[in-house]
Nucleic acid binder design. Structure first.
Lengths: 203, 203, 203, 203
DNA sequence: CATGAATGAGCATTCATTCAT
DNA sequence: TATGAATGAATGCTCATTCAT
């Protein structure tokens, strides 16, 4: 993952194609979008898709990766100045929920479509997701080491609880197009989370 | 060429086709399933699908309706002996969650796929869903009349809260194949619900 | 051809099927009519068509034959009392034009569709047409023998001129749904015909 | 894989497909011709038909338009040097009959099949036919203005009489594959026409 | 980098016809 | 005589992908 420097000297046609897909994904299912449609919207030759991307799915993963990459880069950047694992997790949760809310199209694909694709675990998309999940894991481990977080729960379970809860809350909202009150939701989630996992909780 | 004794009412091939679709739906998207596949799995001629069902979607709706019909019939039967709107709602919630848990394949389709189909609102599936929702509405109205339920909330909002909550809780579990603790979930949901809507709540 | 006695003890289902086809032919092309449609309109089982007729085309030919048979039978009957070949031909022409006008659906099929079918020359339809043409031929030969008609034109050419002219005049009217003034047309045709072929023409 | 020098403007496969259809139309009904057959005769992939033409009917209309376009262009060019509406009409009639005779396959389709197609009036074929009919109309109006043609008959009726007569005479010949004596037919038609519509007719 | 041409495999659906009873 | 069930072979059409240039 080339996080910091990016998005610069990409051939314009590549971007045109990616933009075309993004545009179309707002309207319909990935499977219902045809390469002909993509190329028409992009204003380029259909075969050009295959110069820039392995195949149709590769294009989707590239588009997703671009989004994800930016999100993860920003998240990591934002977490830089924050002190303490708990504060970092709070930020992490809040940012993720905001991302789900802001980019509903991609969030939906991420949560629903992409996981069923064969070859998902070899995709760049997965790599970034993994990077993101590992990053959270490091925060948790940091918190355990520093004594902020209980050491009697398997860290991966904590991570799964965090990521699972976010999904759990956001998915129906994404599917049924409900509004998400990001701030309140993040607060709620964190409250539940921290009361459970903070060591020597005196509440 | 079956054994002499066969079901007179419905041709066995119809069931074979329906079963084939059910089987395939466990593995993949409805749109990704082809009629050729269905007929192959069913061991019948592809054209036979169209003797028994209007089209591919008609087959899906037939299969869904069958399931739904049985569920709704049972639900109504089970509610017969129960006294009081609150008790009925508790049973209603519990049964619905159990149904989602027991028939995950169909629940997933019901919650995700079918609503996007053109013509859904003319389908038999929708008719049964509507019947089911209307049934809940009657219970709520009965509760309001009997004084069990507050009369200062629009009944349809109460209904939407009930049905929405159930979906909200079950959908991620269905999608990510989590286990559902039906009893606990039903209790939780009802607790939240009743404390809010029971008249003269003294808590 | 069993001209005189007919139409009596046919099984009702056979007639139902034939009637269904007749009905449908008024609305659309023979090729656009399906056996499913025929059986639906007839209110009988689709397979029953194949009990009564060899195939779909056989059904058409049967229906056509029935019509033709009746027409030819009536024509022959009507010609019985008429004296002289010229008078007979006049009647012949008049009756044919009237038939074309009265049964436009079948006339169209007869003039346009049926001739292109493989196996037409083995069909009963063709047998009746042949009988009809031969009948005209006999009148012509009778006229030549009796001296009414010139003997220096090949009789078959005379016949072709008569039948061809009638078709020539009626076909566009049938295709474009023009009205046919049968009496005037018959008069015109005969005038042209007789002035040309009557022996010792003194006009 | 053709020889080095090839037609730049239109891909050869497009012409191959068009030629294949033309060939097949000599033998059978448009509706009886399948896309599989067309591609087989053309020696190209079936899907290629849909790269070059909207659909099967689009292919037919393209082929028809090509023919019609050439005919109408030539007709208009030939009429350029001719003085007087009557002379122009004579040429118009003669050319149309010749066209019917020369391109019997397309004439047949034009007179029989194409008019029944849904969407015919939106087709390019119809546009050209309309242009052709409008062109005749202008000649008639020119003739009325110049005093060559009676002004007491609705011009559109004159036009319909001209076009209708031509069809009326040519259709049976096309259908039954009779020879057409173009010169004699054109003379006859014009004689009838002009004696009726020329002003100050002294016959 | 770009493209016009081409294609194999597949799609849902339809149809005339056959078969077992 | 009648029929419900079944089917092989098409049908027009679409799609993601490849290739030659």
């Amino acid at each position: 993952m080339n996080v910091p420097l990016k998005n610069k000297s990409l051939p314009p046609s590549r971007q045109k194609i990616a933009n075309a897909l993004k545009l179309l994904l707002k309207e319909k299912d990935f499977n219902s979008i045809t390469t002909a449609e993509i190329s028409r919207v992009a204003g380029v030759n259909e075969a050009l898709i295959y110069r820039h991307f392995k195949d149709k799915r590769g294009l989707l993963h590239a588009v997703l990766s671009e989004y994800l990459d930016e999100f993860v880069s920003n998240l990591i950047f934002d977490l830089k100045g924050i002190k303490g694992a708990i504060n970092k997790i709070r930020k992490f949760v809040w940012a993720t929920i905001h991302y789900y809310d802001a980019d509903r199209v991609f969030s939906k694909i991420l949560l629903l479509e992409v996981r069923n694709f064969p070859g998902y675990f070899e995709s760049e998309t997965y790599q970034i997701i993994k990077y993101y999940a590992d990053f959270l894991m490091k925060i948790i481990q940091e918190g355990i080491k520093s004594g902020e977080i209980r050491d009697d729960i398997v860290p991966s379970n904590i991570r799964q609880f965090i990521l699972g809860s976010i999904e759990h809350y956001c998915l129906p909202a994404l599917i049924y197009n409900h509004k998400i009150d990001c701030d309140a939701l993040a607060d709620n989630l964190c409250e539940i989370l921290f009361v459970g996992i903070i060591k020597n909780n005196t509440f």
